[in-house]
């Protein structure tokens, strides 16, 4: 009788300590972004006495944050849409086409899981310049789509392989073409697996800093990550503004995550079990 009680105390103690470690920086970030500089230094942990929105107003005006958000949104949504669409098409063929070619291609695709695309950056940069896409958000999308292919084909092919064969046979007997089977039968069934792929890629693409850093100099084509790095460099001695920059980048994602946390973790866990 003593043991379960001890376990419970241990569980709560460990998790509560970690909770403090997670929340402390986030609390410090958000609470101090509403304080003037001298109060940040005088009392870093309390609620703001001298509440101010100066940091946010200035940063929003100086930094074209609206533009950065729009760019990141366009890049993330278009890349995700393409990854899910062409990835699921490929996965359907990889799962249902029995031939040495498809076996080879499957291995070729998932080999990319282990090899980071960044190692090819020098050539990608030359390719993007040759295509005259540098300094535009369009330079990012094809790279992100390619980067998403290994995980998409890996998770989706495994998922389609586990669907019962009768389902496909029934549709074929009714005279459906492969395209119809894919779009009318497979796609709707695949929704949970598509969600897993989307979550994995969304975090990666939205937060990617490397490719915007390499491809984009122009103000108008900056994503949130790149904009944050440049603005932070500019304001690093003005803490109210520096913290406002970081909060502006972090808060939308925090809210989105808290709203969708359940589906988020479920989707990730489903993907992990499949893997």
């Amino acid at each position: 009788m003593l043991r379960p009680k001890f376990n419970r105390i241990f569980t709560y103690t460990v998790l509560s300590i970690w909770t403090l470690i997670v929340l402390f920086p986030l609390w410090t970030l958000i609470i101090n972004s509403f304080k003037p500089q001298n109060e940040i230094f005088a009392s870093p942990f309390g609620f703001p006495k001298d509440f101010t929105l100066d940091g946010y107003i200035e940063v929003w005006n100086a930094g074209h944050f609206g533009r950065y958000f729009a760019n990141s949104l366009i890049v993330t949504i278009l890349s995700l849409g393409l990854i899910l669409f062409i990835g699921s098409m490929a996965a359907y063929a990889l799962a249902k086409w029995k031939s040495p070619i498809s076996n080879f291609l499957y291995i070729f695709f998932i080999a990319g899981l282990m090899i980071p695309i960044r190692l090819g950056t020098i050539d990608l940069m030359r390719l993007i310049i040759a295509l005259n896409l540098q300094n535009t958000i369009w330079s990012l999308i094809p790279v992100y789509v390619a980067m998403g292919m290994p995980i998409a084909t890996f998770v989706l092919t495994a998922f389609i392989k586990e669907l019962p064969n009768e389902m496909f046979d029934a549709a074929k007997v009714d005279g459906a073409s492969e395209w119809q089977v894919y779009s009318k039968v497979v796609l709707p069934l695949m929704r949970p697996a598509l969600a897993t792929v989307a979550i994995f890629n969304m975090i990666k693409i939205w937060n990617d800093f490397w490719f915007p850093l390499v491809f984009i100099r122009q103000e108008s084509a900056r994503t949130v990550a790149l904009g944050v790095s440049l603005l932070f460099g500019q304001y690093h001695t003005d803490w109210t503004r520096a913290l406002a920059v970081l909060s502006l980048a972090a808060i939308p994602l925090l809210i989105l995550y808290i709203l969708l946390a359940r589906e988020f973790i479920k989707g990730l866990t489903a993907g992990a079990i499949k893997g």
Partner: peptide
Amino acid sequence: WVLFLLPALLVYLVFMAGPLFDS
């Protein structure tokens, strides 16, 4: 089947596998 695979393969070849090997 080839048509199903083609878009994914093209993007993957041109923007990932190709640059990696060319490196």
